[in-house]
Design a protein around this nucleic acid. Structure first.
Length: 707
DNA sequence: AATTGTTCGATTTTT
DNA sequence: TCGAACAATT
């Protein structure tokens, strides 16, 4: 094979890249070179002249991977990537809807609501309808609406099975109406509106079907029903869908992702051969063996077995601490040692199941003076001051945007109080118009203040009409009073800094984007909320949830909090599919490590202000014991004896057992004592048996043995 | 209009 | 436990 593109591919990768035009399912294990296959496939199709750039549609879930694909592609081929449609589902739908906003019944400058904007709009709708938000929590309604949209269902298509449900449907409809009135589109709506546009408009559908000969999809296991149907629609009868994914890494079911789409795909697209990429270029053997063994406990997988040409490497190190503080201290000590061995801090990650676990670890790291970085905070475009600035721009672009108006009508304060705003809202409701229109015609006591606000916005709009985006930004910041506000603010330094950064963002946007309009920038701000906090700066230990770690890799990984109830999480461990997803999550965690993997747990842990005693995660039983090296066998008795007040419960210590003690029961297996009562013949203990539940046992009868 | 108090809730979150 | 979110103060 003389083709330079194909050099260095393994046989399976090569087969995938050079498949003839047909739909294919590529089962790509962790670290198997999936992105490389995807990009090389595109490059190969183009280079061999099988398709022109216009014929390519490549879909990803994140902007990050879309960008990476483009970067790699332009490194492989000297082509301009303009003609190709490479982007996220949402980005591509946005592009389509912008191009055909008329047919989609949307205003030209329709705004995109992010999750927070959506929630705020839902709250407004509830308030307007006088709905008790105790009975109908906005969050729940949001979940309901998004869930239905992701299943392709409009309010009038949802089955009502009880009164509560009927009300939710009614509210869904009211929300939709309000969105339409404001020219606002939420994330799920982008997809659904686009889907409906294509399915109803035969001309458009046929146009795009004829165009996109090759459709490539990344992270296919994360697609929801609507995305699956959207792809089907674009694929039509003639186009080839190249779906790449890993059913074992599906960890977003709670957001509507359906692993089952991978199995359906085989059937619906008559996939002839499923290609497995099982050679792993990331981790050493023991890590992969552990991952393979663990995931083998799941049912109904497509099935695959990761292997490596490298050696087995080190065993997995397991550390069982007495308390969460000790667990954190162990991590600190170990990280310091690793640092001495020359491992870069950036290349070490501490993973946990839930964010709450980070605090203890952060505290220990801070005390030890180890720099660390926690992923998952607010992102750039989600910050308060940025939202305010964007709201001015949104109002300039589309005055029907009630959400934007409410955000800035009295910020910075300009004497328009809550009463005035309420009266505007009720006027708008009565005359079925936007808040902006109601504000324009609003007289009364605050009439002058309102007129000032209206003319401020109108001035901003007309004065910036001919300006470039960055100039518009500066003009708005200076004349809206936003900049002055944060200059006067005591703690406004960072926020001012961010506002300046916003102008930079506009400059950068112009350099890259195709749609250079203000509306284009606003869409960009909603769709790409920015990096999670990219202060690259100095080397720092990486702290994040297992979810956030998907797609990343590190030399050394600590997976912490491996206890029943935490990981697998108690809310998921009940039903089998929930447990399988937890197991996949664990699989993702394990496969992040290249060389060293630590698994840590603690016998006791402070959670929601209470000390909890958990038993070891069942996942330990699913790993080959030969791969595990237990660094210690925790000797709990370290009497942290809390000074017992006179009224305290009888001490189980009379019986040789204490709270926190691990025990074995002939029927229920391993457990931890979490409470005790009575003494002598009446002595009872409460034991947490993890998956077997929590039970009260009479000491006299239960044959408990210390574990 | 900004400060202080009170309540409630608490997996995971690519867009 | 602790923080966000809302209400009730001054």
């Amino acid at each position: 094979m003389s083709n330079a593109l194909l050099a260095g591919l393994n046989p399976e990768q090569l087969a995938a890249v050079t498949l003839p035009k047909q739909s294919a399912l590529i089962l790509a294990g962790a670290g198997s070179g999936k992105t490389r296959v995807l990009t090389t496939r595109i490059a190969w199709l183009l280079q061999t002249g099988q398709v022109s750039p216009q014929g390519i549609l490549a879909v990803t879930f994140t902007n990050k991977s879309a960008k990476e694909m483009l970067t790699r592609l332009s490194a492989m081929l000297p082509i301009n990537t303009r003609g190709m449609w490479i982007g996220t589902f949402h980005g591509l739908c946005n592009r389509l809807l912008r191009a055909h906003h008329r047919e989609a019944a949307l205003p030209e400058a329709f705004q995109i609501l992010d999750s927070a904007d959506q929630l705020a709009l839902i709250k407004r709708v509830l308030k307007a309808l006088n709905i008790d938000d105790e009975k109908y929590p906005p969050k729940q309604l949001q979940h309901f609406i998004n869930g239905n949209k992701e299943n392709g269902l409009r309010a009038n298509q949802v089955q009502a099975y009880d009164d509560f449900n009927r009300k939710l449907i009614e509210l869904y409809a009211a929300y939709e109406q309000q969105c339409q009135r404001e020219g606002a589109v939420d994330f799920a709506e982008l997809l659904l509106r686009c889907y409906e546009l294509l399915s109803r408009n035969e001309m458009l559908r046929e146009h795009y079907q004829a165009r996109f000969q090759h459709i490539l999809v990344d992270e296919f296991q994360d697609t929801n029903k609507l995305q699956y149907d959207w792809l089907r629609l674009l694929a039509g009868h003639n186009n080839a869908v190249f779906a790449v994914g890993d059913d074992d890494q599906s960890i977003y079911a709670f957001r509507g992702a359906r692993v089952g789409n991978m199995y359906d795909f085989e059937r619906d697209y008559q996939v002839k051969n499923l290609i497995r990429l099982e050679q792993n270029y990331r981790s050493q053997g023991n890590i992969l063996d552990a991952a393979n063994a663990l995931i083998g406990n799941n049912q109904g997988r497509l099935g695959k077995n990761l292997w490596t040409a490298e050696g087995a490497g080190e065993p997995l190190k397991v550390y069982e601490a007495f308390a969460d503080l000790d667990e954190a201290q162990f991590i600190v000590d170990e990280v310091k040692q690793l640092q001495r061995e020359g491992i870069h801090l950036n290349d070490i990650a501490v993973l946990y199941r839930s964010n709450a676990q980070s605090r203890v670890i952060e505290h220990a790291l801070f005390s030890a003076g180890l720099p660390y970085k926690v992923y998952g905070g607010l992102r750039f475009f989600e910050r308060q001051e940025i939202k305010h600035a964007l709201a001015y721009l949104r109002l300039m672009a589309n005055s029907d945007d009630d959400g934007a108006l409410l955000r800035v009508i009295n910020f910075p304060t300009r004497g328009i109080g809550a009463r005035t705003i309420e009266s505007i809202q009720s006027n708008a409701r009565l005359s079925h118009c936007s808040l902006w229109q109601a504000t324009c015609s609003g007289g009364g006591r605050s009439g002058a203040a309102l007129a000032n606000f209206v003319s401020l916005i109108e001035r901003l709009r007309s004065e910036t009409a001919e300006m470039t985006l960055p100039d518009t930004m500066e003009h708005m910041l200076d004349h809206s009073g936003l900049r002055a506000y944060y200059q006067a603010e005591k703690e406004g330094e960072d926020r001012l800094e961010n506002l300046n950064e916003l102008t930079n963002a506009a400059v950068n946007y112009l350099a890259e984007a195709e749609d250079r309009s203000l509306t284009g920038f606003l869409a960009h701000a909603s769709l790409e909320a920015g990096d999670h906090q990219a202060e690259a700066g100095q080397a720092a230990l990486q702290l994040m949830t297992v979810h956030a770690a998907k797609g990343l890799e590190f030399h050394t990984v600590f997976v912490s909090g491996l206890e029943e109830g935490l990981f697998p999480h108690e809310n998921s461990a009940m039903d089998p599919s929930g447990l399988e997803e937890e197991r996949r999550l664990m699989y993702v965690a394990i496969t992040r490590a290249r060389r060293k993997l630590y698994l840590t747990l603690s016998q006791s842990r402070m959670l929601h202000g209470q000390t909890r005693y958990n038993i070891a995660s069942r996942f330990f039983n699913e790993l080959p014991q030969g791969l595990l090296q237990w660094i210690n066998k925790a000797t709990p008795a370290a009497p942290k004896a809390p000074p017992a007040p006179a009224w305290s419960k009888p001490k189980a210590s009379e019986t040789g057992l204490r709270i926190g003690q691990s025990v074995l029961h002939p029927k229920f297996g391993a457990g931890v004592i979490i409470d005790c009562e009575g003494r002598g013949a009446d002595a009872r203990v409460q034991v947490n048996f993890g998956p077997e539940g929590v039970k009260w046992l009479m000491l006299e009868y239960a044959k408990l043995t210390p574990a």
